[in-house]
Each structure stands twice: as structure tokens, then as C-alpha cells.
Design a protein around this nucleic acid. Structure first.
Lengths: 205, 205
DNA sequence: TTGATACGAGACGGTTCCGTATCGCTTCCT
DNA sequence: AGGAAGCGATACGGAACCGTCTCGTATCAA
């Protein structure tokens, strides 16, 4: 974490040590509030302090402001994602797309990530932090697609980058925005993959 | 507009009439601010009044609050969309998907609609208003797809509702969020349609 | 002309949050 | 033991916005 106490050299601090539990409480309270639907713009230091059971000064002692705190909070969300069976591209894709929803690691993550999206376009800092979080996840999908292209499960001329977005985009808008009132976001991964597989398959059906 | 002066019956008001230009100025200022990236939550009556060159009281005289004003402002955005050539499903879809971007009617519309998305999930009122705006647009896509199913350009067992979301979702996330840094949102409509056409085609490639 | 209402401007008290500072108390190092 | 810093709590002045209200002026119908 960029603005956390430097653990580097030896110039020992004289007084009391900063509590790790307090760090965790602040980060966790931040993520909680985000997961509950508080937007980045409305999120306030006071609400975080209150939720964490912490004084405001304790937060300002560690981070210069909301942006830096948010950056560190988001950094804790980097996670590898689910195990893959690896037997078929179709099943692996469905598994990966399914975890745009609740995850075992941190159940708040799927709640938080989509809610951050709108804010990312207005802050280079946060846009980059966000990309760092989702890039590993995107990469899992990329690897599955490339594997499929390599072993013949997918057509050789497939545009992998485009396909990733076509796979994830619909599920994202549906989960976050209930964009289409009549579709069920939970069954979408399988439906989307099957719809696209026909187009991604090497030759005919 | 729901909260605008009732033009119904005859009980004439005695004094000065409300200016239509003021109505337009307020609505327009609201849409301007949204198009510039101001989120719904941060949007304030004071900023709207200032932008419109209008007193706050003039706004409160017409609408009870921000929600009602926003509802009416969004209602003015309903638009039919572009003309369609009607020669091929592929071309019509590309045309429709392209106008998720800049439109001739109101260039602010494509800027505004996506930015509203995150807020819609938190307000039943606004969620419905939003659905009313995009449903006509969604319906254009629906009709093109059904036409394609009917005339054999698309496979007969196509899930039209799902396909709509798979077409629009990726373009939405890319335009609004630059979700994938390496993809070009302007060329996506054609790419997405072509990628899906292979899957939507009746039989083999 | 007169009375009623709309208008732009802005004062008003209330609320929320900002970032800083202070106050006892606790916890750590020497 | 004692000094230094962390801690929760809270007070502080400042800023932004809320929704109401009151000015002086402009515009309407009768």
C-alpha cells in the first residue's frame, strides 16, 4: 500500500506503534460502504471513520485523502479467481463469467467492482487502479480463449480481445444495471457462451 | 411533463405567465451538466439554477425537487433513432449500435444515458424513467432481429432478448467505461455484429 | 391603471462534510 | 519510570447545498 507506514529502514519511531487492526478496520469499512452501494463521490471520510469506529484523525494520519485511501482499499481486492476444470473452453468460460457474481474470496468484490465503473472514467488514478484489479481476471478469460484457438475448439481467426468484451459486457450490464428487465443474470453466462460458441466454433454447427 | 403547469381547463391564472424559455433553460442546463459528466448524486439544484441563469425559486416553483426535475428532463430525451436501410440485418444492426454514440437529434443523449446507468439501480422512479427512454431504442433492435429470424437471415431458434443484450452490452461498457483499454468503441458495432452473425447465421459459415 | 403572479438575485438557518487541532488515555521504547 | 507517539472523541472554521423566503422589477388580465 502506497501510503502505509514505511517498514523499510531502522530509524525507529519512539512512541506507540500504529495498530494493524485499525488499518484493517478502515479498509474494511471503506469496502463495506462501497459494497452497500455508496458511490465513490458520495463516500465520505466521516462515514468511513464512523463505520470503522475510528477517529477521523486516525485516517488522515495514514492517508492524505479519500483518493489515496480508496486506491489502497481497491488494491486489497486483487484476487486470482476460481479454479478451472480445463476440460472444455465452454465450461471454463461459463465458470469465469459466473464469478462476475459472488465470489468465495471476498463476497463484497463483485458488489464493489461494477459500482466503481462509472467513476473510473473521471480519474486517471482510479482508472489505472481498477484496470490493475480486473486485468488478472480478464487475463484468465484471455488464456482460455487462446487455448481454444490453439487446440481447435475455437476458430483460428478469432479476435480474442473483442470476444472477451462481448462475453463479459452483456453480463456486466445485466448484473449491475438490470439493463434488460426480463433477463436473468444468473443464467446468462451459459446462455451467452452458447450463443457465441456457434460463432466461435471452427466450421459449421 | 408530470409537474409542469396544467394546460388543461379554463381557470385562468391572474398574473404573469410562466416563461417557456425558462422551462427550456432549466431542462437544458440539467442535461448539459449530466452530459458533462456530473453524476446524478452530485448534481445540485444550485448548479442547475446557476447554469440556466435562473433563480432557485423558479425551479422549486415548477418541480418539488431534484428527482421530479430529473424525471422530466429525461423524458425529453425519448427519440426514435436513425433511419434504417432495411436491406440487411447486418447493416441495420450496425447502424443501430452505432447510435449508442453521437446522435443527430441531441448530441448530449449518448453522453447522458450511460452515465445514468449506475444511479438507476437505486431509484425505482428513475429506473422506470430510464427504461421508458431506452425501451423504444431496444425495440428497434428487437424488430430487426425478428425480421432476420422471419426472413431466414438469422437462425430460427435465436433468443432475441438475449441477443439484444449481447449486442449492446459490450458496446455500452466500452463506450462508457473504456472497459478494455485496447478496443476502439467506434469500430465495435461492426465487429460485434460480425462476430455474432456467424453464430446467428442459420447453418454453417 | 391596478392587482396578481413570475422573474433574477440573494439572504437565511440548517445540514453535511472537509481537514485541522486539542484533549485525556493507552501503548510502546529506552 | 518517563517521554513519545497512536488512539477515540470531539470541537473548530470553512465550504457547498438544501428548501424557504423576501426583495425589486417585469409581465400579464381585467
Amino acid at each position: 500500500m502506497d501510503h502505509m507506514p514505511a517498514v523499510e529502514e531502522a530509524p525507529r519511531a519512539p512512541g506507540r506503534l500504529r495498530s494493524l487492526r485499525v488499518d484493517e478496520a478502515i479498509i474494511s469499512a471503506t469496502l463495506d460502504l462501497l459494497a452497500e452501494g455508496t458511490s465513490v463521490e458520495v463516500l465520505s471520510i466521516e462515514s468511513i471513520a464512523s463505520r470503522a469506529g475510528v477517529g477521523k484523525a486516525t485516517i488522515y494520519r495514514r492517508w492524505p485523502g479519500k483518493d489515496a485511501l480508496l486506491h489502497d482499499a481497491l488494491s486489497t481486492l486483487k484476487s486470482p479467481g476460481p479454479e478451472l476444470a480445463g476440460e472444455s473452453v465452454r465450461e471454463d468460460l461459463i465458470a469465469l463469467l459466473g464469478q462476475v457474481g459472488p465470489t468465495k474470496q471476498d463476497p463484497r468484490l463483485p458488489q464493489i467492482l461494477p459500482c466503481l465503473l462509472p467513476h473510473m472514467g473521471r480519474s486517471k488514478e482510479h482508472y489505472q487502479a481498477y484496470q490493475e484489479i480486473i486485468e488478472p481476471r480478464r487475463n484468465r478469460v484471455r488464456e482460455v480463449l487462446r487455448r481454444g484457438v490453439a487446440n481447435g475448439e475455437l476458430r483460428p481467426d478469432l479476435d480474442v480481445e473483442l470476444t472477451m468484451t462481448v462475453l463479459i459486457g452483456p453480463i456486466l450490464v445485466q448484473r449491475v444495471l438490470r439493463w434488460h428487465p426480463d433477463l436473468d443474470a444468473d443464467t446468462m453466462p451459459e446462455q451467452v457462451v452458447d450463443l457465441l460458441m456457434a460463432g466461435m466454433a471452427p466450421q459449421e454447427a
